[in-house]
Write a protein that binds this DNA or RNA. Structure first.
Lengths: 143, 143
DNA sequence: AAAAATAGTAATAATATAATTACTATATTG
DNA sequence: CAATATAGTAATTATATTATTACTATTTTT
């Protein structure tokens, strides 16, 4: 039960906006922009070319070029030439890249689960239902 | 009706996290960190000292010192010595500071309102109810 | 097929952010 | 009251981000 509610809570955030910063507290491993890029890729759940990321995050492609090659060198993502457009490169997260984002979400997930003990069983049912409804309808709005 | 739902939507975001970055697309006026600080102050809705902001945003106080004095020089906030602790300084947004954040929220608000036309009346009622419930219960969780 | 647009790279300079150390003034603790 | 902790400032250095210009290889348009 708590797990379902926590999943809904996690799912709610990307409905509102794709990437954010609070998540990166204490994350020393990557620079601010590297984090943004990896989070964005994680959210999109598909291979992206640099233009997709550039537009999605409002970063110049010239910046992205460096950021991506650094992330590739450190093993967080891989680049593959796009067979459909030979100018383009498709990037996707490696296991390592996926894990580093997943760990941050796990912290939020855990914190939320802990807080849930403050609610009664009835309130938890209500929260679960309402979150589900919100996620469903917000998703519909974005289509 | 749409207005109520939009208000709930706006209210939902601070329930999830206090400051975020997507909001700043196209905002040239301020630097990244200046934006963060002003948004944080806007969310908190009260006079804060530098330590509050420093901890809230996970920024070193030495950095904040500069950021705050720049923002003060540009008229976005004012500093007042804290009468209860003479070491401390309380900062609060000026009208100009409040407006610059308000304008960004207005864009989000507008975009959401426009999207709402995609829902049926029944769905809007549902969304309103569910958002209200989510906001109420998430607020309770944070206490 | 030529012209124009697009995806990405490269290199440089300007500005912003982060990290470190040291300092003053006031509060708190023992 | 002395020792210690806290809020903020200042200055310096290292690193990251942004902006600009120019370029190659492909794709799309005319």
């Amino acid at each position: 039960m708590n797990e379902d509610i926590a999943k809904e809570y996690i799912a709610l955030i990307p409905n509102l906006f794709g990437s954010f910063s609070e998540l990166n507290k204490g994350s020393v491993e990557l620079s601010h922009m590297q984090n943004h890029v990896i989070e964005f890729m994680y959210m999109q759940q598909r291979a992206l070319n640099l233009k997709d990321i550039s537009m999605g995050l409002d970063i110049a492609k010239q910046q992205l070029s460096n950021i991506i090659s650094d992330l590739e060198a450190e093993g967080y993502l891989v680049k593959v030439s796009d067979p459909k457009d030979k100018r383009a490169v498709l990037v996707s997260l490696t296991t390592r890249g996926t894990e580093i984002v997943g760990e941050k979400w796990a912290k939020i997930y855990q914190r939320f689960s802990d807080n849930l003990t403050k609610l009664s069983e009835e309130e938890k049912l209500d929260l679960n239902f309402a979150l589900h409804k919100v996620n469903f309808l917000l998703k519909k709005l974005e289509e």
